[in-house]
Design a protein around this nucleic acid. Structure first.
Lengths: 245, 245
DNA sequence: GTGCACCAACATGTCATACAAGTTCGAGAA
DNA sequence: TTCTCGAACTTGTATGACATGTTGGTGCAC
């Protein structure tokens, strides 16, 4: 791939203490930079006591900093064991989206309105870029959907199909965004499948797969558009997203 | 508008202490629920000491909980003054997107690949749903772009145009997502404008505005698609997003 | 009376210490 | 060899103390 602008982590100067800035801020920045730069590549953070000595701050500051990193989903802390670095994922984004929707009274229908263009675009790229392995995974996902016994399995197979498409774009941000949306639509989707069955989803997936195999971008986009619009129609108005995690 | 599924905050039971769960978790949940439910509607949280008594926990716990809410961008804390509730915004999402892009080496070009379908869809909805006030604001934004002296003003006018379109969809999630993307593309856009001038942006905006005034959804979408693709072409490969906030 | 400077009360930031509770891992028993 | 158990380590919570920043009112100067 050609040289392309990247989101980089400039030389981390954040360690040097800034006068007037709370100690906590620089501590958070230092730890975040270390994590982003791949220090702690074994996934284990040093114990809080060690960090205190290294950074020259008290355990309160280290603890509060780690709490922030925990909410950012950069690390996971549990009592007794040292904190672990989490792999990059969509959980943080799902959190922020969830909070936003709760506080602005946005509806699931409006969320699906965002999903539509994303999935359509993903499908278009996938039709252009998918490789043999991706096609195989799509076939497997379709088969899993037909053979799934429980609603849980059906929902998983459905999600897997869309995820393979997103991965086939070669653009990780598509996967990231789709995951975040899926997280919020998860419960809703499960109930929809339980109510209307898998027929609509299966028909949609087959049409999409067929178009993709022909490398027909236009038809693939159209099929996905229809598939999503159909899913929106089937949205159960009583479905809500639970606020607890 | 019809009755539609909403993201709701179910009756907050999270206050009841769960055995084995760290005190901190329930404290975070309690405070978050209170904020989401509109307690503290004056925007001011009680002092930490008061919260300690109310929740029956020590100040350490309250402080760590507030740190988490701070990283979630739900509150803002500053020394000396009590913490304030922040209005819902896209900052948290921009954070998570930023972290994800840093850790996965995603490029700005890939980010723009996501922006394309979103903006096109937004423009389509805007062409259908925009009202007189929205049209007026679009005209003003175009005029501001032509009359802007500094790169800063140009960049602002550019952003304003896209923001009005997003707001015209009536779907707050579009605004939310676009804001988060814009935050990351901000520096890049500024440099692009400084390098290639406003002519391409201005031409694009005019074409879009013209199509929207005719309520021509197809033409509006096409014009926005061309506009964004043009912006992607002009992306300066040397542009990077700074990691500090 | 009006406006300013200043100070007291208050709130948060940071530190130190102590103990409770959970995890890990090796020594020793079966 | 395998299982059990406990010591050492690590995080969770509480408390008290002091530093630093903010707020609002008092009282002086004009």
């Amino acid at each position: 791939m050609a040289t392309v602008p990247r989101v980089t982590q400039p030389d981390s100067l954040s360690s040097l203490p800034v006068k007037g800035e709370p100690l906590l801020n620089s501590t958070v920045n230092t730890l975040r930079d270390r994590i982003m730069n791949g220090a702690y590549s074994d996934g284990m953070l040093p114990p809080q006591g060690t960090l205190c000595e290294e950074l020259g701050v008290s355990r309160s500051v280290v603890r509060e900093a780690m709490r922030q990193l925990q909410s950012l989903r950069l690390i996971e802390v549990s009592q007794g064991a040292p904190a672990r670095v989490l792999p990059p994922g969509s959980a943080a984004m799902a959190d922020s989206l969830h909070h936003f929707m709760c506080r602005t009274d946005a509806s699931l229908t409006q969320l699906a309105e965002i999903r539509l263009p994303l999935e359509v675009e993903i499908t278009g790229f996938a039709a252009e870029r998918i490789n043999a392995e991706g096609l195989l995974r799509l076939h497997i996902a379709v088969r899993r959907l037909t053979e799934a016994k429980t609603v849980e399995e059906q929902s998983d197979a459905d999600l897997e199909f869309h995820r393979v498409l997103a991965e086939s774009t070669g653009n990780p941000i598509f996967v990231f965004l789709l995951d975040a949306l899926a997280e919020l639509l998860r419960e809703s989707r499960r109930r929809t499948i339980g109510r209307v069955g898998i027929s609509p989803a299966l028909a949609g997936h087959l049409a999409i797969l067929q178009a993709i195999e022909k490398r027909d971008v236009k038809a693939a986009r159209a099929a996905m558009g229809e598939h999503i619009r159909c899913a929106i129609r089937d949205l159960d108005p009583s479905n809500v997203i639970p606020s607890n995690r």
